[in-house]
């Protein structure tokens, strides 16, 4: 006995109507094309940077580019040492992180461990809104408020354009970013860990510093990396407040030239479109692209690991 006989000849068909099948396929295809776009753009960006900076690296060796300290592409003879730019960028970044990391982390600890539920509900959207304030606003603040303030109080010798106030204000800009990501990971640390520590007689301080922060350390680290990448790629604040001349050795009280400002200078300058300077632009863009990409991917991977550990 295999199968009942009255079904042996069947009129049942469960095929999809042809029109519907076509429509479903078409719609799926349309959506796929949209998604494909994002992929295409990324590879186009990468491809463009490689292709366009080739003429530069054909003429300037990688060692000269990365090891040289004199950035003077328009001088005769030109010199393409990017180290001065990198150093200036890193000094400003370091100042920014010096402000953003402690303040951001403390804010996060406060919101996650000390603030009441209501306060947290109020503060989180405020942080989100502040994180989105246009950067040109911060740049204006650095140029027209922080620099004059510093000149009048602590540092009379500070120049009008300087890396210090750009870095300080960039730090303020990054605080909300660090605070909101760190707060999320701190808050995600499971209650059972906290309760276990409290059950052993730990104080709130001990629970926070010895249990919660270590448990969330990878996520906090990811927020720091993201802050770093954000600081390196920031353009408007430095273009407004840091000036446009490279400082070697890096001195934050003097004008500084970051990679991003150099890109702005080249792109907005009246250079011949075919000039060699154009490929310098792509070489610098490539450098910026790669370094931020590395940091972003690292932070992405770390956050994902964290989420897997404390879902």
């Amino acid at each position: 006995m295999l199968v009942n006989s009255h079904h042996s000849i069947t009129s049942l068909e469960l095929r999809p109507p042809f029109g519907r099948l076509l429509k479903e396929r078409f719609i799926r295809w349309v959506f796929m094309v949209c998604a494909f776009f994002a992929v295409v753009i990324t590879f186009a960006t990468l491809g463009m940077f490689v292709a366009e900076s080739l003429p530069f690296f054909a003429q300037v060796s990688l060692g000269e580019f990365l090891g040289g300290i004199r950035w003077a592409p328009l001088h005769e003879p030109p010199s393409y040492g990017v180290l001065a730019l990198v150093a200036d960028t890193l000094v400003i970044t370091a100042i920014a992180l010096g402000v953003a990391l402690p303040l951001g982390l403390l804010s996060a600890v406060f919101l996650s461990e000390y603030a009441s539920f209501r306060l947290r509900q109020v503060c989180k959207p405020i942080l989100e809104v502040l994180a989105g304030v246009p950067t040109v606003v911060y740049g204006f603040f650095a140029l027209r408020f922080v620099t004059p303030l510093l000149q009048r109080t602590f540092l009379p010798q500070l120049s009008f354009w300087n890396g210090l106030s750009a870095g300080l204000v960039m730090g303020i800009m990054i605080i909300p970013l660090v605070a909101s990501i760190s707060e999320e990971v701190l808050f995600a640390v499971p209650r059972r860990l906290r309760e276990a520590a409290y059950a052993l007689g730990a104080t709130k301080f001990e629970v926070t510093t010895r249990v919660v922060i270590p448990a969330a350390s990878s996520g906090i680290g990811a927020s720091f990396i993201l802050a770093l990448s954000r600081a390196i790629g920031e353009t408007m604040i430095v273009a407004l407040a840091a000036g446009r001349t490279p400082a070697w050795p890096p001195d934050p009280t003097r004008p500084m030239l970051t990679i991003t400002t150099t890109i702005v200078n080249i792109a907005t300058g009246d250079h011949e479109a075919t000039a060699f300077i154009w490929s310098v632009l792509f070489a610098l863009g490539f450098l910026l692209f790669l370094s931020t990409l590395v940091f972003n991917v690292a932070s992405h991977v770390i956050v994902r690991r964290f989420r897997e550990r404390f879902p």
Partner: peptide, 15 residues
């Protein structure tokens, strides 16, 4: 299902 294999290739799960 009524003699027709619903896992057959020609069958549409929606149907």
């Amino acid at each position: 299902f009524r003699g027709l294999n619903i896992y057959a290739r020609s069958v549409d799960p929606v149907e």
